[in-house]
Design a binder for these strands. Sequence first.
DNA 1: CTGAAAGCGCTTACAG
DNA 2: CTGAAAGCGCTTACAG
Lengths: 344, 344
Amino acid sequence: MNSPRRAPVIADVARAAGVSVPTVSRVLTGSTPVSDEKRERVLRAIEMLGYRPNAAARALVRGSQPLVAVFAGNTTRYGYARTIQGIEEAARAAGRIVVITVIESEDEAEVRAAVDLVLGQTISGAIVLDYDPQGATTLQAIGDSVPTVVATPSAGYSTFPSITMDDETAGREATEYLLGLGHRTVHHIAIPHSGGPGGRAVGWRTALEAAGAEVPDIIGADWEPMSGYRAGQQLAAIGDATAVLCGNDELAMGVARALAEAGLRIPQDVSIIGFDDQPLAELWQPALTTVRQDFVELGRQAYALLDGVIARTTSRRIERAKPELIVRESTAAPAPERLAAARS
Amino acid sequence: MNSPRRAPVIADVARAAGVSVPTVSRVLTGSTPVSDEKRERVLRAIEMLGYRPNAAARALVRGSQPLVAVFAGNTTRYGYARTIQGIEEAARAAGRIVVITVIESEDEAEVRAAVDLVLGQTISGAIVLDYDPQGATTLQAIGDSVPTVVATPSAGYSTFPSITMDDETAGREATEYLLGLGHRTVHHIAIPHSGGPGGRAVGWRTALEAAGAEVPDIIGADWEPMSGYRAGQQLAAIGDATAVLCGNDELAMGVARALAEAGLRIPQDVSIIGFDDQPLAELWQPALTTVRQDFVELGRQAYALLDGVIARTTSRRIERAKPELIVRESTAAPAPERLAAARS
DNA sequence: CTGAAAGCGCTTACAG
DNA sequence: CTGAAAGCGCTTACAG
């Protein structure tokens, strides 16, 4: 049942249908009219033989395959996974298939090897998920060899057409919300590389400075919940923190657990805001206030942009997907006694 | 910076190096020895021109591309995402790239369209993630057109070479553990399609029957936490439940929230076991007892198996990845008063 | 509308 | 070790 035999080729179809090879090709591509009678015969032969055009041969003459390459630092973290989902959906709907490559390190040789492997394919275009430093290295390795588009959380300085989420505004608004609740300042537990231009940390700092609030040191973390847990322990040790903005929801959950273990109540003692609104955020106890990001839509837009770039209809348009603050149970005005304690 | 120009072809390299085209091909493939001097010249020309072999041309003569297709019902859910991660890692290490296609529905025409799109490519092989009913439909659409392997949670009856997790044993052991703690019976909140041969529900039922325990009706759910929440509300309404085995961790978390809202304590009133050990499970409060599944490893094994099938070294070997029960805080012996209440 | 011819960029025998 | 030739399976002008 699973031992491949020689697949039929276009000549087999032509023979079976009693027409020439180009005629079969014409009914396949629809490029030129074909008489109803011959078309019928061809279609029947295709059906009978189970013929499928050889994409490699087609690509060789056409110059490209209906392949779109996605380069990502990761495929399982929430933002990446969702963006990829959006890209795949849009690509499939457009009749293109997506090859996905994980760029694990920033090492130039490794990046180049991974990129070359893919660029050896006659792909139609590439989408780079520029959520981390590998993104820039990848873009450099791709160069101008293929139409390329980038999806990025922060409005960087990329020369490539790109779709960005407005992370800076998101960070600013979340911080302003907390400040508006009466918090003296807001701590920030950051995912890696979010301090660059247009990043969350920039918006957070801007809001703090505009309000004349003290700007605490950023507590660094990675993307994993356990890292948030450790950051939460640091935060608890600070003692006077009443509000914290976390780089993603997993971090926020880790922080929440660490604070709870330290005897702090959420939101009475400390308010927490996450980022992403992943499915568990609303079920967490207390339900997480968070900045929702529509990654699936970002992915769809990235595909659409690439489509335009390939067709040369668009070039360097920058779209922005708007993040949205979802207020739930993990944020509140600071308790007066906690504020007083902090003051002392 | 992003406008492609004509890419150099092998003839350009040959000309620049002052050798014939086949000689360039020989240094590229290493199929036949080439004099050091010419090899040097060729390598230099390749470097200078930035030449990359055209994979479509290569595929046309070789009959296949270094492409492995992955068909999955979903790319973002924990098990799927992790399995895909394992496949991608292994494939990249072996110099193959992976195209991923989501099969959304069971509709035969849709499945066939998606499969045909991919099979049109001269791929080396395919891996089907048979975690849902689409899996079977996909396998049928692929037929014997290409070397194919399946990764599945339950030891089904597939005629394709496959890697399975031993879901039945996992379900049985988790249930036995709960029974051993003193619970009278164990409820089951099931993800879709887990009741088939080799499935979790089978192991659960087996353990219950072996212990002479009552077998409660299965509460159906999907994979999302909110669905677990609703199932948890149903469970709370039952009143006498003291233990529940959930089809995945997200479900377990939803259940936990619903039970907590109903005033039930975990684990004093109700013990909960999840499935997967996703990263948040250990941070949940109380930390979730769960059945850990190594999906990344499952993915790697699936790739290795496919590799063997392509090379005709292996054929229908069945591997089993062993799930492991991780005991944490969400399970305990039932409280005597709760047992008494249940009895009345 | 339709067939014969050429060509896409490579690799693989075939002769040396 | 190396070049000239053929061929992989398609599509695209070119003539009718």
